[in-house]
Design a protein around this nucleic acid. Structure first.
Lengths: 178, 178
DNA sequence: TTAAAGTTTCAGTAATTTCTGAAACTTTAA
DNA sequence: TTAAAGTTTCAGAAATTACTGAAACTTTAA
């Protein structure tokens, strides 16, 4: 690894835990992203100095995130791995996976708790708070799911619009009420 | 704690690490959110069965996220803690803090690496990938910052619009080109 | 069908993160 | 000014999470 690649890979490793995967997984993915040609599991282990078993676990995890692609070389039984899709796809996958892990379990718990009978005054207050959180989370979840369905270009337009979005919204509102 | 409150608190503890803080911090915050009246550090420690020191650390952390509010009772020296702001504020704080922790360090590293001289062909490819990631992150960062500046109502309108946003955008586009 | 090449699993070890509890420090009523 | 009440800090213990390396398993060319 050249110094540039190495800093990038190490950084992704350190950030990994914040992004929802462990160090090794982050390093492997980073390495694949900056490698022009696909790498074998052994190549990866050698570059990163991690055990063969760990490489295998990491690749499995990345596959579950649909972030790697395998390819083959004729006459060679080895699997070769590369980063799947565009950077854009990557961001989508990460968001999606995080939604699943960070929001879905909470939404489901909140739904259950909202159905429980509140016996005390305290419980009534608690449930009202729970329901607020539930509504907010649900709205965010719905919205992010729908954003992901937009064509990347539309999303880019929207993002570039930034603050200006309120102006466009006003126009839309006006049209509606006319 | 009633069973409802307890499940909620425990769940927030478990989710904590995914949301960027540790178990205790999650539990404390959850407890404050569902408590009508502010609680003293001792109340919190007793309810959650965690050490006094740990409560103090947790509250400090929550304060750095600007998620708690202190209040006082006349003739009582103790600090009393409650959840700060609305649920909406909470979501904003969490997003903001996570942006800081999850994106800013990476953006800054990428900027540096893009300035490095690429000596090899591999490095050139790596840098081109880095720059793609950089651009995407920067766009997301800018956008999310601007979204946060919108009035909650505007944001709600936008969220409710969901997929329909593309229609409104088209209208906006048309107006522009006319 | 065999064996070489590759992949996966898993028990034990290492590293990291979190928590405790005691001690130090701070504040204020008397 | 004192001491009681409250708060903070921090070194070490406990719990959690990640990693290694060896062994088991799978695949396929010959």
């Amino acid at each position: 690894m050249t110094p540039i690649v190495e800093s990038f890979v190490m950084h992704f490793g350190e950030m990994g835990s914040r992004w929802g995967f462990n160090r090794t997984v982050g390093q492997i993915y980073a390495l694949l992203v900056v490698s022009k040609k696909p790498l074998s599991a052994n190549d990866i282990g050698d570059s990163l100095n991690i055990s063969r078993g760990n490489v295998s676990m990491g690749l499995k995890e990345l596959q579950s995130w649909r972030l790697v692609q395998t390819s083959h070389i004729p006459g060679d039984r080895k699997d070769y791995y590369g980063a799947a899709g565009t950077i854009w796809d990557m961001a989508n996958r990460v968001l999606e996976e995080r939604r699943k892990r960070e929001m879905d379990p909470t939404l489901s718990l909140l739904r259950n708790l909202m159905l429980e009978k509140a016996n005390t005054d305290g419980d009534k207050y608690a449930q009202s708070q729970l329901s607020e959180i539930h509504n907010l989370l649900e709205q965010i979840e719905k919205w992010s799911t729908e954003l992901q369905k937009l064509k990347p270009e539309t999303l880019q337009t929207l993002m570039k619009l930034g603050n200006g979005v309120s102006k466009v919204l006003e126009i839309g509102q006006r049209r509606k009420s006319n």
